[in-house]
Computed example of a mutant assay.
Amino acid sequence: MRIHRFFTSHPLQNGLQITLEEEPSHHINQVLRLRAGDNVALFNTDGEEYGATLTQVSKQKVTATIGELIKHEAKSNLAIHLILGISRGERMDFAIQKATELGVNHITPVLTDRCVVKLNETKSTRRQAHWRRIVINACEQSGRCRIPVVDKPVEYGSALSSIEGATTILLDHRSRFTLHQIDAPQSSLSILIGPEGGLTSNERQLAIKKGFVGVRLGPRIMRTETAPLATIAAVQTLWGDFSD
């Protein structure tokens, strides 16, 4: 029987009893219709997953007693930072969900010249919270125990200026380089991918000035929601944890 997994911000330790947050409580009570005595798995940002037994399930609250450690998720030998031009609605949601499943560690949504999405401060905060929920759900479903960081949307230039100490690549179908032709990253890799319509010439030049190396993935031009998935899968195969 499948054991349902849930993220919690609480510290986890054998024998502790905790009250779960509103979102997992609602899912346990109203969606899955679990009952006191049912077993679940819980994880937080420490990279560890514990078994747990539900002790109270009601509309008011859901409590659980923490059991034995199930697994400890080691950090990947390649930390992947995705810097992604913001696209519309479901396209952005899909890219963030699948990037999480593929093992990305950090996601920075960026506002570029060709972004069709306009965000003020309030909308940016709401969108960040929405994307974080997508990331958490993707971790619950995929078996991950470490939650990727999701930044608030940031201006393009500011995003590039904040990158330090990593190999940096720009996905660009015009480039003469492929992934096989660049130096292997030591421990971290930043991947820059534009929005619908791509990056402008000035934006590409700024990225190169900041040290990004343009690379292409074959002869085809990929959509903004496809490009990050193909790139992450490729780098995980070459240098990451796909061989673990």
Rank of each mutant, 00 (worst) to 15 (best):
L78V: 01
G15V: 11
L78T: 01
I191T: 02
I221M: 13
S243F: 05
Q128T: 04
L54R: 00
T125I: 08
R132Q: 14
R133C: 07
L192Y: 01
H106G: 05
Q205M: 13
I232W: 00
T63S: 07
I28P: 00
E49W: 07
G51Q: 03
F212Q: 01
L12E: 02
S175D: 03
A74Q: 13
R5A: 08
P11V: 05
N39A: 11
A207E: 05
I86E: 06
F212P: 01
C139G: 13
N120V: 15
R114D: 15
T125L: 09
L179G: 12
T65E: 12
G240Q: 01
S58G: 09
A52F: 01
K123Y: 10
L199T: 06
R126A: 03
V62Q: 00
R2T: 14
W239M: 04
G211W: 08
V116S: 15
S188L: 07
G214Q: 04
Q205W: 11
R223L: 11
D38W: 07
K71S: 09
R2C: 14
F177I: 12
K71W: 03
L192F: 02
K98E: 03
T55E: 10
R204K: 14
Q205K: 15
L54I: 06
H4F: 15
L217C: 15
I191S: 01
I96C: 09
R35Y: 14
P148Y: 01
F177G: 10
A99M: 00
V57L: 06
I163H: 08
V117W: 08
T65W: 07
A230P: 14
I134S: 12
W239E: 01
G197C: 14
G165T: 07
I66H: 00
S175H: 04
T226N: 15
H72A: 09
M92R: 08
Y156I: 03
